[in-house]
Nucleic acid binder design. Structure first.
Lengths: 143, 143
DNA sequence: TTCCTAAATAAGAATTGTTACTATTTAGTA
DNA sequence: TACTAAATAGTAACAATTCTTATTTAGGAA
């Protein structure tokens, strides 16, 4: 992980007014040093090698705090439970970052986006799915 | 829900060689009749009004079977646990539908996609995130 | 139609990922 | 160096999902 990332982390955490603990440093160092997208258990196992007494609870709390502080993000629509979709035609989603509401929309253009050259090396692209994120009309009104 | 959807469901299930039970019909009817993206518990509660003895387990098994048969899909990267990402710069994902591996890539063009008119009514778009789905090189080789 | 059998179900127990509780420790400050 | 609020470890609790087992049923055969 770069010095710059570490410096940014220290600054943002100081801004947030939280304490700079060993555990927080090591947990951030772990996640910032990898480009796969590990889950909490994986981070816990790796951090444990350096900090044997760290608890899984601390890992969860720290990840949640880092997310709150804008230092990390999570994959997919805001966690919670698995949601199902009977619409199997190609379609895309508008997702409200406030309330999590997800609405379908259709767009031919998005169904066949030009695949960037970097991605050609990763594998064969079969579908493209666009997620447009923002604030839904309802949340905007009630705000 | 349209007759056509129901017909397609019956055909696909017959193809899969599974039994056409009341429970499966009603669970599919429920999810196909709505455009929000309900979770298993919601589907369970709604189906229960018509089939009071249905079990939550059956709902889970049926949804999983319908997904396997290609009749429904799930939102987000394949369920399982929450995964974290220390990359907070705007970026996009290539996701392998076989093994679930998720790789980051960057593309200016995808950062600012033209928002379709339908979506303008849904709310204000702040970010766009593209998920290109396919088979990663590794899975392709080992296949 | 009735019978048969493998598949599916209901009910509840078990498992897994995540969060909460509480006594102890520690970062930041005086 | 001492103080205090915040953070931690350890464990218990919780919620979503899956498994186990005895019972029921769809679909095919007689």
């Amino acid at each position: 992980m770069s010095e710059q990332m570490m410096a940014e982390m220290l600054e943002k955490l100081r801004e947030s007014g939280v304490k700079l603990t060993h555990q927080r440093m090591e947990i951030f160092r772990e996640i910032a040093g990898r480009t796969d997208h590990p889950d909490a258990a994986t981070i816990y196992e790796c951090v444990r090698k350096r900090l044997p007494t760290v608890s899984l609870d601390t890992v969860y709390r720290t990840l949640s705090m880092l997310k709150e502080a804008g230092l990390i993000s999570t994959l997919g629509p805001n966690q919670d439970r698995l949601r199902f979709d009977a619409n199997i035609a190609p379609h895309h989603h508008f997702v409200c970052t406030k309330c999590g509401k997800t609405e379908d929309f259709y767009c031919e253009e998005f169904n066949a986006l030009r695949v960037p050259s970097d991605v050609l090396n990763m594998g064969i692209v079969e579908h493209s799915h666009v997620e447009l994120r923002g604030i839904c009309s309802e949340c905007r009104r009630s705000n």
